[in-house]
Design a protein around this nucleic acid. Structure first.
Length: 462
RNA sequence: UGCCCGGUAGCUCAGUGGCAGAGCAGGUGACUGUUAAUCACUUGGUCGCUGGUUCAAUCCCAGCCCGGGCAGCCA
């Protein structure tokens, strides 16, 4: 007989004489003449209640083995439940233990801390919370492709190993096949990377942006969606050394069009999760973040606020707040400032744009004032920056000046400069941290809990 | 990287300079269409590691290790 997923069994419109369910025991409650076994197969949050009568052969031995964590295969009838907690339940005709789980099985019926569950990252997807998180993660990954594909964007696979540094994006992990103990040396004593695998220094990518720009300047609208790496020693709940990023790049689009795209993108993802992961989101609202539903409502209903960096600084100066880090024009906005804008002043996602040129990388388009660039950051309540983007500098002469000002050698970026040399166009793009978006949608507060196997400084288990 | 908090049973935690505690989990039994079932009994300990102070350290001190929070950097 073919296996039915618990999710589909719950969606059944009528009883079934014969059904096969396979999954893992979450909990068992014994009676004198029968046992309740809750079977979960991960297809949805809810498990299926199995009724096992003591008339089944080997009943005692079977139930003894069917503890929390054991894998089982159950054949029986899908019938309307007599109990109040569920519509359907299964009366078992056959009950087979596939794999036992003894008393050392670490997941219990009762609550665990997230810190403990991180230590058993290989088992935590079997918990309610992490099952829900990773179902939502899967769904949103799908929704990302859907959003862009429906708008005529092409999916570009930018390289994971790169020799170019997307300047400003942070420290990089070196990729090398040289002997770490005895690397070849050049005459001046430095490591001779000309004898490395790629015959030059190479790294894991920090961003696919520069490569995506080349494709936007050919296919018009493209996006990347893949892993990126930062070797920063960042120890916060919002940073990981390996994370996934979505980077759309659009030709003939200015900064404000870019903001429109970012806003509809965020709204699409929230709406999609709500439509397709309703039970999981309800769970988050109940057990993870009581304010989640209200916050998501807010995001869906209101247009994102927009204010220039200069206006934002004025708002912060006039707020009457005492800041741990004083604010003045020309300084980076700190977490406390971003949080104030999104959480207290505007009380919704805010797009801040036109940042001082000195704070931003070389590729951002310089405004007519000569002091600011066409950069934008989308700040959301609770998370902070979820999107960073810009209109790119399409004027060859200005780009060269910026590179010189940043101390960058033109020969290292010859192909990037070619995009401006041959048929240059105004274009814009942004990067969204996938995990940060997941944190926003699920209410989960730590980035380590929305990525299957987190890589953070000092930690790369599993 | 800096500042702060923590590490005691499988899990969540309390506690004390003088015999190591609870709830849950596990085990045994009872009871029951239960649903984080309930009730009774019960097994279970390198009190993170190393050193110091002390008659005596899980407790006080120092160093180290590990986890977490916040900040910086950023997505």
């Amino acid at each position: 007989m073919q296996r039915t997923l618990v999710k589909d069994a719950h969606n059944s419109t009528e009883p079934r004489d014969s059904i096969l369910l396979q999954g893992w025991v979450r909990t068992r409650r014994d009676s004198k003449t029968f046992s309740f076994v809750e079977l979960n197969d991960g297809s949805c949050l809810k498990g299926m209640q199995i009724i096992v009568q003591n008339t089944l052969p080997d009943y005692e031995a079977l139930m003894h083995k069917a503890g929390t964590g054991a894998s089982i295969s159950v054949g029986g009838k899908l019938v309307a439940s007599q109990g109040a907690g569920q519509k359907w339940e299964v009366l078992a005709d056959t009950f087979e233990i596939i794999g036992e789980a003894d008393a050392s099985y670490p997941l219990q019926k009762k609550g665990h801390t997230l810190e403990f569950l991180r230590e058993i990252a290989h088992l935590r997807p079997r918990s309610n919370l992490f099952g829900a998180v990773f179902r939502v993660r899967s769904r949103l990954a799908y929704a990302i492709h859907q959003f862009f594909q429906e708008r005529g964007y092409f999916y570009v696979h930018t390289p994971v190993i790169t020799a170019s540094d997307c300047e400003g994006a942070g420290e990089m992990f070196r990729v090398s096949t040289l002997d770490a103990d005895k690397p070849p040396r050049a005459e001046d004593g430095s490591v001779d990377f000309a004898r490395d695998f790629f015959e030059r220094q190479s790294f894991l990518t920090v961003s696919g942006q520069l490569e995506a720009e080349t494709f936007a300047c050919a296919l018009s609208n493209v996006y990347t969606f893949g892993p990126t790496f930062r070797a920063e020693n960042s120890n916060t709940s919002r940073h990981a050394a390996e994370f996934w990023m979505i980077e759309p790049e659009s030709a003939f689009l200015d900064l404000f069009g870019n903001m429109d795209l970012a806003e509809s993108f965020v709204k699409h993802l929230v709406a999609d999760a709500r439509e397709h992961c309703a039970a999981d989101l309800e769970f988050f609202g109940k057990f993870v973040d009581k304010g989640l539903n209200a916050r998501l409502d807010f995001v869906m209903q209101r247009p994102f606020q927009r204010c220039s960096y200069t206006e934002a600084i004025e708002i912060l100066e006039k707020s009457g707040r005492k800041w741990e880090h004083p604010v003045k024009w020309g300084d980076n906005m700190q977490s406390e400032h971003e949080r104030f804008l999104a959480e207290e002043h505007f009380k919704c996602p805010v797009t801040v744009y036109d940042y001082p040129k000195t704070l931003k990388p070389f590729y951002m388009r310089v405004n007519d004032d000569g002091k600011t660039v066409r950069a934008m950051d989308v700040l959301v309540p609770g998370i902070g920056e979820i999107i960073g983007g810009s209109q790119r500098e399409e004027r060859l002469d200005v780009l060269r000046e910026n590179m010189a000002a940043h101390g960058l050698a033109e020969k290292d970026y010859w192909w990037y400069l070619d995009l401006r040399k041959y048929g240059t166009v105004p274009h814009s793009g942004f990067g969204m941290g996938f995990e940060r978006m997941l944190m926003f949608v699920t209410g989960v507060a730590n980035i380590r809990d929305v990525i299957p196997f987190a890589r953070t400084p000092g930690s790369a288990d599993f």
